[in-house]
Amino acid sequence: MLTDKELDKIAGLARLKIEASERERLKKDLSSILDYVAKLDSADTSGVEPLYQTTGQVNSTRADEPRGEFPMGDKLLELLVGQAPQSKDMLIKVKHVFSKS
């Protein structure tokens, strides 16, 4: 079973706040999934290279040239900045980082 300390550490890394009411349930769910995946320990992977993707493509690069499919203009700028919940003068607005001491 995950400990409260572990749960808090993961939640902090994931930028999530776990409500007291969710806590026991989440600990139980995560622990049961971790118990299930523990079966991976019995797979013999000695000498096996990890597989991160399946198409075998390596360094799929393109020429560093403007392509023009998304020409930046007022309309696109408005659409993109407009996706932010808060904006001002075509800039995305965020809360302050430092607090007054």
Binding site: L34, L40, A43
Partner: peptide, 27 residues
């Protein structure tokens, strides 16, 4: 749940046992 699980699997000290192991099994 899945964000928590993934964060756990990728976190320092657990990466090899979970994430790397899973990708080897994927192979």
């Amino acid at each position: 749940r899945r964000i928590m699980l993934g964060t756990y699997a990728l976190s320092s000290g657990y990466y090899d046992a979970y994430y790397l192991k899973a990708q080897k099994v994927r192979a």
